[in-house]
C-alpha cells in the first residue's frame, strides 16, 4: 500500500498564511505558480469519492473496473480538486479565507489512476471587476507521469477578503 505524502508546505489552517496573501491589485495576469507534484493513492481516491458521496464501482471494485472501458480502477473526474489544493503553495489566492467560487470549467483527458503522480501547471489568465467584485481566473494544466493530459481546468474565485478588516484595507 502506498502511503500518501502531502507536500511538506501543505497547510490545513488557511488563516496561517492570510497575512502573506497578496491583494487582488498585486496579482499580475500571466504570472505562474510554483506547484508541487502529488501522488494519488487509492485511499485518497476513495476518501474523495466518499466525501462527494459518489460510490461508482469503478472507484471501488477492482473486478468491475477491470471489465470497464477504463480497464482498471480510476478516480472520479473531480479528483483534480485535492490535486490542485495539494499542489499549490499555502499562500496562493485559491486558499484565501473568504474567497468565493463563482464557477469552473474542466476538460478531461485520461483518468487519474491509483499511484499516478500528477503535475499541475498553473497561471493567472485573467482578473476583472464585475458588479463591484474582484475576480481571478486561472488555468490549471494537469498531467500524469506519462505527460498525458488529465485535465485542463479554467476557473477562479471572487476575492473579497471577507471578515478581516486588515485584509479589506489591502
Amino acid at each position: 500500500m502506498v502511503q500518501e505524502k502531502l507536500p511538506e508546505r501543505f497547510e490545513k489552517n488557511f488563516f496561517k498564511y492570510e497575512e502573506k496573501q497578496r491583494s487582488w491589485d498585486d496579482l499580475e495576469v500571466g504570472e505562474v505558480y510554483n506547484t508541487e507534484p502529488f501522488t494519488v493513492t487509492l485511499e485518497r481516491i476513495q476518501l474523495y469519492a466518499e466525501g462527494t458521496e459518489d460510490y461508482n464501482p469503478f472507484y471501488f471494485d477492482e473486478e468491475a473496473a477491470k471489465n470497464s472501458q477504463f480497464g482498471g480502477l480510476i478516480a472520479p473526474p473531480t479528483i483534480v480538486v485535492p490535486i490542485v489544493f495539494a499542489s499549490l503553495p499555502p499562500d496562493h489566492w485559491a486558499k484565501m479565507p473568504g474567497a468565493i467560487n463563482p464557477g469552473q470549467r474542466l476538460e478531461f483527458g485520461v483518468p487519474v489512476r491509483p499511484g499516478d503522480t500528477i503535475y499541475c501547471q498553473s497561471k493567472l489568465i485573467d482578473k476583472y471587476l464585475k458588479r463591484g467584485k474582484k475576480y481571478t481566473v486561472a488555468e490549471f494544466f494537469i498531467t500524469n507521469q506519462k505527460q498525458e493530459m488529465v485535465c485542463r481546468w479554467i476557473g477562479g474565485l471572487v476575492l473579497q477578503f471577507q471578515g478581516n478588516e486588515e485584509m479589506i484595507k489591502k
Binding site: 502531502l6 488557511f14 488563516f15 474523495y48 466525501g51 489544493f85 479565507p97 473568504g98 474567497a99
Partner: peptide
C-alpha cells in the same frame, strides 16, 4: 468533503 478535497477554507 473538506478533508477529501483538501479545501479547508473557513467559509
Amino acid at each position: 468533503n473538506a478533508e477529501a478535497s483538501l479545501d479547508f477554507n473557513p467559509i
